[in-house]
Structure formats: structure tokens, C-alpha cells
């Protein structure tokens, strides 16, 4: 087999995927702006994404905040420690670790569930059935998930920021012997508006990406149980990679 032909085929397949996904994203987003809207379904997705992800995201955040504090304290002299630990925890959580880790956890939890649910509906002809009942699957299945993803992830990240900083506070005041008042005032001094806002913006983008990937791979899955399994894997992997990639791009846009 010709090596060039192989490279060409892989590249063309990649371009096909990118084109197909771009079309899917554009059609889906345009449906977000046009009625009818399914408020009941959107609310259900919001509860699923926002409320039921709280334990996972909260646990991730508290341990991340604690570990940040622990690592930072070992790197600074005792005098500078209190202020710098508080600063690193506040910056790290709000700017990077809050949105990225919450995004990755939700990608695993929600992106997979979306791909599996829609994929199963696809292979059992439920998506076709929606069409025949005069209901657009984009509006009924995709739009509620996109809206819920883009609105709920920022809220989750806000909670993750607070819990993460609290984790740093708990470790700092109990294990490292910092004063409660000193740690809190140092945190306040170093918390900046742009850091929090950039983190929440990232979260909204990640939420949209997770939902888009979950729905795209679900709706394009084919061929029974194996196809649904593959769609689920692809949804999680592609969403995770895109989150890390877009995190860099967004950081560059905000701070460079």
C-alpha cells in the first residue's frame, strides 16, 4: 500500500469529521436562537448537569485547593508563606484549576452520558421517531443540553473556586499554622476580578464544548451497542482534549 495514499486518506477523513462537526455546531447554535424552546427539558438538563455534578466537582476542588497550599508552603520561606500560599491558591483555583478540572470531571460525567443516551436513541430509531412526530431532534435533544452546559458550568466553577479556596484555608490554618484572619485577608487582597471572570468565561466555553461533543457523537453514532460505546469514548476524549486546548487559547486571549 502506498504510504502517501494512506496519509491522504487519514487526512481527508479528518477533514470530513471537522466539516461535519462544524456544520453540526452551526445548525445546533442557530436552533438555540429560534423557537420553539423546550423549557421543561432544559430545566431537567440543568439539574442533571448543575446539581448532580456538585459532589464530584466539590471533591475535586477541595483536594486541589489543599494540595496547592501544601505544595506552595514547602517552596517559600516561613515569613512569606502565609501571603504567598493564599495568593497561589486563589489565583490557581480561579484562573486555571477551577475551570479545567471541573470541565474535565463534567466531560467524563455528562459528556459520556449525553453521547450514550442520544446514541442509544439513534440506534433504536428514537431519533427518527422524533422526526416523524414533527419534532426537530436538534431542538428537542441538542439545544436543551447546550444551554444547560453553557449556563451550569460557570455556576459549578464558581462553587469549585469557593470550595478550593476553602480547602487551602483549612490546610493552611490547621496544618501550616497560619492565622485565620491573616489567610482570609491575604486571599481577599489577591483575588482579582479579571481572574474570576476569565475562569467563568472558560467554564461557559467548556460547558458548551462538552455538550456539543456529547450530542455530536451521540447523533452520529451507528451500528448498535459497539457504536454507542465508541461514541461515548470519542465524546469524552474529544471534549477533554478541546478543553485543554481551548484553555490555552482563552488564557492567551485574556492575559497576553
Amino acid at each position: 500500500m502506498n504510504l502517501l495514499a494512506l496519509v491522504g486518506r487519514v487526512f481527508l477523513a479528518f477533514l470530513t469529521q471537522v466539516g461535519q462537526f462544524t456544520l453540526f455546531a452551526l445548525v445546533s447554535l442557530s436552533h438555540c436562537l429560534r423557537p420553539p424552546f423546550y423549557l421543561r427539558l432544559t430545566a431537567r438538563q440543568m439539574i442533571e448537569i448543575g446539581y448532580y455534578s456538585l459532589p464530584v466537582v466539590g471533591l475535586t476542588a477541595i483536594f486541589t485547593g489543599m494540595v496547592l497550599a501544601l505544595q506552595t508552603s514547602s517552596g517559600f520561606s516561613e515569613l512569606a508563606a502565609e501571603s504567598s500560599v493564599a495568593m497561589i491558591v486563589a489565583w490557581g483555583m480561579t484562573r486555571e484549576l477551577g475551570p479545567v478540572l471541573a470541565g474535565l470531571m463534567v466531560a467524563g460525567r455528562i459528556g459520556a452520558a449525553m453521547a450514550a443516551e442520544i446514541g442509544t436513541m439513534k440506534v433504536t430509531e428514537q431519533v427518527d421517531a422524533l422526526y416523524t412526530l414533527s419534532t426537530n431532534p436538534y431542538k428537542y435533544l441538542v439545544v436543551p443540553r447546550l444551554i444547560a452546559g453553557a449556563t451550569m458550568l460557570p455556576l459549578l466553577v464558581l462553587v469549585a473556586d469557593i470550595i478550593g479556596i476553602f480547602g487551602g484555608y483549612v490546610l493552611g490554618t490547621t496544618k501550616l499554622g497560619f492565622s485565620e484572619h491573616g489567610y482570609i485577608s491575604a486571599t481577599w487582597r489577591h483575588l482579582e476580578f479579571i481572574g474570576v471572570v476569565s475562569g467563568l468565561t472558560k467554564a461557559a466555553v467548556f460547558g458548551l464544548v462538552i455538550a456539543l461533543m456529547g450530542c455530536y457523537h451521540g447523533i452520529h453514532s451507528r451500528g448498535g451497542a459497539q457504536g454507542v460505546g465508541k461514541a461515548t469514548t470519542n465524546a469524552v476524549v474529544s471534549a477533554s482534549i478541546l478543553i485543554l486546548l481551548l484553555n490555552y487559547v482563552l488564557t492567551e486571549m485574556f492575559f497576553a
Binding site: Q126, A129, T132, L133
Partner: peptide, 13 residues
Amino acid sequence: LSRFGMLFQGAAL
């Protein structure tokens, strides 16, 4: 399609 009805092979409920 609002004038159509369809019974799917696997019922597709």
C-alpha cells in the same frame, strides 16, 4: 410529516 404516522420495527418508544 404532521400528516404521517409511523410504526417502527423496534417500536422506537
